[in-house]
Each structure stands twice: as structure tokens, then as C-alpha cells.
Design a protein around this nucleic acid. Structure first.
Lengths: 343, 343
DNA sequence: CTGTTAGCGCATTCAT
DNA sequence: ATGAATGCGCTAACAG
């Protein structure tokens, strides 16, 4: 049973043919007769033959492996993207190797390098760094001709394909929705690090106000790390300072939850006194009280789109493919946290 | 730049030594002088050498890859387990290949087979099937001598290592806590499929009642698929039937959320009229209103433990290692949904 | 401390 | 339609 691993040579020998014929038969090569294909398949089965992709990969120079690098896999957004990637990879007989950068550039560099050593056929990643010097390692990947697709946290500075959602639009829709609910003094939570996605959301907020002739008040913009605590602090500050506001549009679901907690503690009515909108459609947003209005980023679809771009690059062979950019439309999910009675 | 891939032969040639010496130097073999190690490393760097793990793997018969099979990666519990596995795998220079069974046995079989073809050094998995015929493919894995570690949904029928939490204890603690809060009529939500983990949780509930001399009432046990809707339905049924109850202990956080929604709609006070306890410590449980008491399964720790067991098997070489079973202690996280005033 | 030799398992070019 | 020969890049046994 557990004797030696059987190879194509073993099955060739048993059948009195050569390994090349077996290899061809197994790969369904048209130049092999149906008869031998059948006997080969049968014998392979009888001998419990298990193909060795490693050997094939070495020979062909293709591993059928996609490397994925995400900040952390146990974040709903990223794990959903991975799910999307894996789904389409699977149908094309590819596997995914998952690495976490844990939000540090060093780890990211190590991960990329390890994946390259593992000879993945390409990499799909979401950047952790924001400064140009923070993604030279990805630039090198691209330069080496290794297919690279960036998603979510991307950059235009590396000439590579990317898939993002229209953050600007998502933020615009969210802000517009609040305005339509009658809100005039809308607080915005944004990230203190000037990352693309947050800049775009800020811009969406800003433009919506402008288009509806609502005065922009810089003191209503709160910068932070977008976590629950940051949201709590921000609202407490505003309250203490006596600032008036009737809504919060947060670029993060977590931060707005902090706001919700504080507002409820202070007995403010949501959404009557303060309407709340988040961003990302984290799984918990449908379970809060009131349920949270938020923006769906379609993470699984992002993953699928990234995988599709990936295979386009892969199949374009050596012809220099112009980097593609897939932009997905976000969706505003309206729930009770922003829906005023009578609207 | 992007010319040909440089190999150990290239760097050997440049240095006027042989490839074996280069290989040894690169692998920090003690039999190589520090001097040559240094020059080799230097030259490797100069030539932009990228090791080919595929070739090494083929030669050594070890791929430095761990296969992971989970029902779906974008479920908080599973992605956290993967995170735990990846963390420890990383420190030992292993990568993880993630596959999803999407809750079907066919997919699971395909995934396992693909991982075997990819020549992973072993597999860490959570079963989807519950009937013995549903895991013959894993039995074969074990029989082939491929290291196999099961977690969460495991079985004793394959002689393999596993890591689980003490579901019985978790359920016992949860039920005991409700009893201590003064609850006497405790509803239990369990799964209609008689899976191990749910049987154990049921048992914990049952034994706690018994130990505190509380009459067991079978009509308070609701079977379902443990989703939000199932929880809603169950509570609506009980209410309609006029059953009295003062608490719900659910084997799933999702199901108990359904209960919370219905109870709030019916203006029942939580926890005063009905106390609520879930299971799993899903990320959303801290954001509900009131926050949900639940049982932490320590998913990251489960992943770490699974990886550790995995490497124990791997390093035990051929010596038949007795299958180990790591049982982690769950933790009851008490929040407002079950904490009555004055307690 | 270093070189020689061989082969891991497979796919593929060139024959026939 | 099949066979023979070669090598992908690396490690390891054996030799010295």
C-alpha cells in the first residue's frame, strides 16, 4: 500500500509502453489513441497513481499557484476577496498560496520573496505601505515579468493591473443620501494616513456637500485610525466642544460604531438627532441597533475580478499587455441608522 | 535584467566553483568555509538570484507547503484559524495553500486531491461531512502517511491528530451562567444535523440543568440550521405556543441574533425578561444591543495548535506517532445580554 | 572543505 | 501513434 510512490514510469512499465506515452495519455494529448488512453487511465487508477505537480511545474516553468498577500486574512473584507480569487482560480486548476503582511512592510517583503521562491505564477495583493519606497518590491515583481494584480489599496505608480471600487462614488452616494434625509451638518471620519481610498472617500463627501450647496466645515472632519476607539474619541471631542451636527459619514464601519455607542450613551436618538452611515458593509452592520447604513464594496466580486485580470495577463504571454484597471460600482445599503421617518 | 533566470550554476560558473558548493553555501552548510559562503552570497545577490523551491522540493520530496481545507474562508472562525496556522507555518518557512470545500463533500474530495497533486507536505482540515463514508478521502490521506490534522469538525474514526475546544464545557459554563442569573426555563438552539460539536453543546446544556436540579423540558429544545432565520422562527414558534422561558442558550451566535430581533420586536426586555447567550464569539457580538454574551473558541489558538501538531507529526518522521488530541478550553464572555442587574 | 555524479518526476523535441 | 533522449534546478551520497 504505502510502498513507493507510483510514477508514470511504473505505469509505463506495467503496460509495456514508454513514459512519454503515459505522460501524453494522462494529459489527453490528441496524438494518442483512445485505446491507449483508456488503458493508461485504468492502470493509473489501479496503481493509485498521484500526479506530481512539482515535477510538472519544474519542467514547464509553471506552478499553477497564485500567491496572495493581504494585511490579515481574518478580516472579513480580505477573506472574502480571497474567497473570490480562490473560486475562479479553482475552475482553472490553480491553487492559492495565502500570506499575511500583518500591516508591516518588512513582512510584506518577506512574503513576496517567499512566494517568488515558491515559484508562484503571479501575485495578487493589497498594499500595506503608502510611500513609493514602500512598494519597490512590487515594482521588482512587475519588472521581472511576474503577473501582478493589485486590489483595494493600490497605486498607479507601478505599471500594473488593479481592481478597485469607486470609493469616490460610494462616499458621494452616502453623503447625498444623508443630505436627502435632511442632514446639513455632516461629520466625516477619515484616516490620518493619506491613503488613496480614504482620499477618494473624503473627496466624495466634499463634492456631495458642494453640489448641494452645503457649507463645508473643516472642523467636522475627524482624522484618526478608523477603529472603534477613534470613533468614540472623535464624537466625544465634538460633543465636548459643543459642535452641532446631525449626521456622521464614516469611511469605516468600525469608527462609526464608536460614534453609535457614545451617542446612545448620551441618549441621542439615531437617526432622528444624528444619522449614521459607515463604509464597507462589515458583517456586523446588519446586527447593530439600529442596523447601520453602509456601502457595500462587493469583496467577493473584487476577488473574482482580480483573478480574471490575473489570468488575462498570464494568457497574454509575452506580448506587453497594457495594465488594466477594473473599477467596480459600490452599493449604498440603506438601513435604519440613517432613515428618518417620513422619508 | 529580465534575461534568463539565474541558477546556482550561473553563480558557480562566475565564481569558478561547482554548483554543489554554491548549493551548500546557500543552505548555510557547516562544511563550507565562511569565506566562500560570503562570496557566494554576494554573487547571488549581484546576479539577482532567486531560489527555485520547486526544484528543491522535487529533489527533497518536501514542498514546504501545508494544505488547508475549510468550508469557506470568509467565515470569521475559519479565517482566524487560517491566520493562526499561517503565523506558525511562516516562522518555519512553510507556506499555506488554502482550499474551500464550500460545504460539499465533492468539493472537499477535489480539494484534497488537488492538494495532494500539489505535493503539500500535509493537510490541516475541518470536515464537512458527518457520515463515515463522507471522509474516506481523508482516511486515504492518513493511510498514505501524509500528515493530517483535523480541527473543529473532527472525527475519531480516522486515527489522526485533532484539535478541538471543549464544547461540552463551553456549553456547561454558558448554561450555568444563565442559571446563576436566576433563569429557570432555558431554551436551547441546536443543530438538526447530529454533528459532534452540537451534540457536545447539547450535552453541556443538559448536564448543567441536571446538576442544578432544573427540570429538563424537551419542548424548549429547538432544532434548526443555526442561521438567523432559524432563530427567528424558533422564538416565534415558542411565543405563539405560549411557552414560558426566561433565557436562550444558542449553540450559534447567528441563531440567537434572530431571537434577539424577535424579542425586541415584541418589546421583551433583554436580559430582564429573557437572557441571551450565544456561541462562537463572532465579531458582531460585541456590537449588538445589548452586547451578546457568548463563548470564545479561540480560533487563532486553534490554528496555532493545529500547526504545532502538524509539525510534530512531520518531524516524527516514520516512527508511528500516536494521534494526539489537543483540547482547548473555551471562555465564557459575559456581556449585557445575560447580565441581570444586581448580579 | 570542495568536486563528481546522479536523479527527483515529468514534458517535450526530435525521431520513426 | 509512439519511442528515445534530454533537461527543468536543485540536493545529496560518495569521494577525495
Amino acid at each position: 500500500m504505502s510502498s513507493k510512490k507510483t510514477t508514470i514510469h511504473d505505469i509505463a512499465e506495467k503496460l509495456g509502453i514508454t513514459a512519454s506515452t503515459v505522460s501524453r495519455a494522462l494529459n489527453n494529448n490528441p496524438r494518442i489513441s483512445e485505446a491507449t488512453k483508456k488503458t493508461v487511465l485504468q492502470m493509473a487508477n489501479d496503481l493509485n497513481y498521484q500526479p506530481n505537480n512539482l515535477a510538472a511545474a519544474l519542467r514547464k516553468g509553471k506552478s499553477q499557484l497564485i500567491g496572495i498577500v493581504v494585511p490579515r486574512i481574518n478580516r472579513s473584507f480580505f477573506s472574502a476577496v480571497v474567497r473570490g480569487i480562490e473560486e475562479v482560480a479553482n475552475t482553472l486548476d490553480y491553487r492559492v498560496v495565502v500570506s499575511q503582511s500583518s500591516e508591516t512592510v518588512e513582512n510584506e517583503i518577506a512574503a513576496v520573496n517567499a512566494l517568488l521562491n515558491a515559484r508562484v505564477d503571479g501575485i495578487i495583493a493589497s498594499l500595506v505601505g503608502e510611500k513609493p519606497e514602500d512598494y519597490v518590491h512590487y515594482e521588482n515583481v512587475a519588472k521581472k515579468g511576474v503577473p501582478l494584480v493589485l486590489f483595494d489599496r493600490t497605486t498607479n505608480e507601478i505599471g500594473t493591473s488593479q481592481v478597485v471600487i469607486d470609493d469616490y462614488l460610494g462616499a458621494y452616494m452616502a453623503t447625498e443620501h444623508l443630505i436627502e434625509q435632511g442632514c446639513k451638518k455632516i461629520v466625516h471620519f477619515t484616516h490620518h494616513r493619506r491613503v488613496n481610498i480614504y482620499k477618494e472617500r473624503y473627496r466624495g463627501y466634499f463634492e456631495a456637500l458642494k453640489n448641494y450647496d452645503i457649507a463645508f466645515d473643516e472642523s467636522l472632519v475627524c482624522e484618526g485610525n478608523m477603529q472603534l476607539e477613534d470613533g468614540r474619541n472623535a464624537i466625544e471631542q465634538l460633543l465636548k466642544a459643543g459642535k452641532e451636527f446631525d449626521a456622521v459619514f464614516s469611511a469605516s464601519d468600525y469608527a462609526v460604531m464608536g460614534a453609535m455607542q457614545v451617542l446612545k450613551e448620551k441618549k441621542k436618538k439615531i437617526p432622528e438627532e444624528v444619522a449614521l452611515v459607515g463604509f464597507s458593509n462589515e458583517p456586523f452592520t446588519s446586527f447593530t441597533d439600529p442596523p447601520l447604513t453602509t456601502v457595500n464594496q462587493f469583496p467577493i466580486e473584487i476577488g473574482q475580478a482580480a483573478a480574471e485580470l490575473f489570468f488575462e495577463i498570464l494568457n497574454s504571454k509575452k506580448e506587453k499587455l497594457i495594465p488594466q484597471k477594473t473599477v467596480l460600482q459600490p452599493e449604498l445599503i440603506v438601513r435604519a441608522s440613517s432613515l428618518k421617518k417620513g422619508n
